[in-house]
Design a protein around this nucleic acid. Sequence first.
DNA 1: CTTTTTGTTGCAACTGGTTGCAAGATACCA
DNA 2: TGGTATCTTGCAACCAGTTGCAACAAAAAG
Lengths: 147, 147
Amino acid sequence: MACEKIFIRELHQRGLRLTPQREMVLSALHEAKGFETAEEIYERVRRLSASVDISTIYRTLDLLHHMGFVASVDAGDGQARFALTALQEPHVHLVCQGCGRIVGVPIHEVEPLLQALRARYGFEADLDDVTLYGLCENCRGSSPSAR
Amino acid sequence: MACEKIFIRELHQRGLRLTPQREMVLSALHEAKGFETAEEIYERVRRLSASVDISTIYRTLDLLHHMGFVASVDAGDGQARFALTALQEPHVHLVCQGCGRIVGVPIHEVEPLLQALRARYGFEADLDDVTLYGLCENCRGSSPSAR
DNA sequence: CTTTTTGTTGCAACTGGTTGCAAGATACCA
DNA sequence: TGGTATCTTGCAACCAGTTGCAACAAAAAG
Ligand SMILES: [Mn+2]
Ligand SMILES: [Mn+2]
Ligand SMILES: [Zn+2]
Ligand SMILES: [Zn+2]
């Protein structure tokens, strides 16, 4: 867990504190392979300590998201999903409405759009939190499969 | 209200019914100048009939959205906002995090991005529901004003 | 006009997520 | 080491929005 060192340093820089709860959430995110719901991450943390509250999970995921360690994607089914992105280039997320798969697109692919919005509308877009919905290559041809 | 005729025709085409509640929501949306929350639209409808339930407002806004009459924008403050878009070209919405203003961008401005996603990722994006966050021209220079 | 069909509504319960607050814990310093 | 300032937590209440369901009402048929 190389990012724990970085995490602690960034916490200190912001005058925030390292707590067992924050360590457990970070650890749970390392266990998880891909995107998981807050409830799934909560279950992982409970295996480490039963007394943690779900609101602490949400608060910690939000903190990690704002620190750039975690991507948060609203998959359109009423539950957000979270995954570690530590050290990766920030990206836009594509959610397939057929199969539910989430793909990250490096933000430089979107640079032309950013420039156009800046030039035409004077708008400086922050693409850290953007999610686009549609159909992936697999799901485009075939009949839409259940999620 | 030119769109009421179209609304009735489209309802019939889908085997759905015209109800007083649906007429009142459409009328409330015509009264509203710009984007309003469900609660604000609910208040407008209540002035016409006190017994309508807020769940009916949500269900009707959702229906109108799916029929393409209404744009729905998550302004990032925990409340969605709705506005009539009848007959307009579909567009992406820009939300300024400084002043809260919502601007519509015609979808053809975003066409190059769509093509890139199609070519590079095989992903067919549906941009009807996209909202981008950032800072508008006014709010970029000055210190961020309260919403 | 009456009946029948089927879509719609109000209501209450529920969902994922947020928030105010007092108790508890961390970091820092004497 | 103990004391203090301040951050964080668990908890319970709350929020916007959704949903199951039985009563109701629009449309169509007779
Ligand atoms: Mn956040
Ligand atoms: Mn619009
Ligand atoms: Zn797919
Ligand atoms: Zn602004």
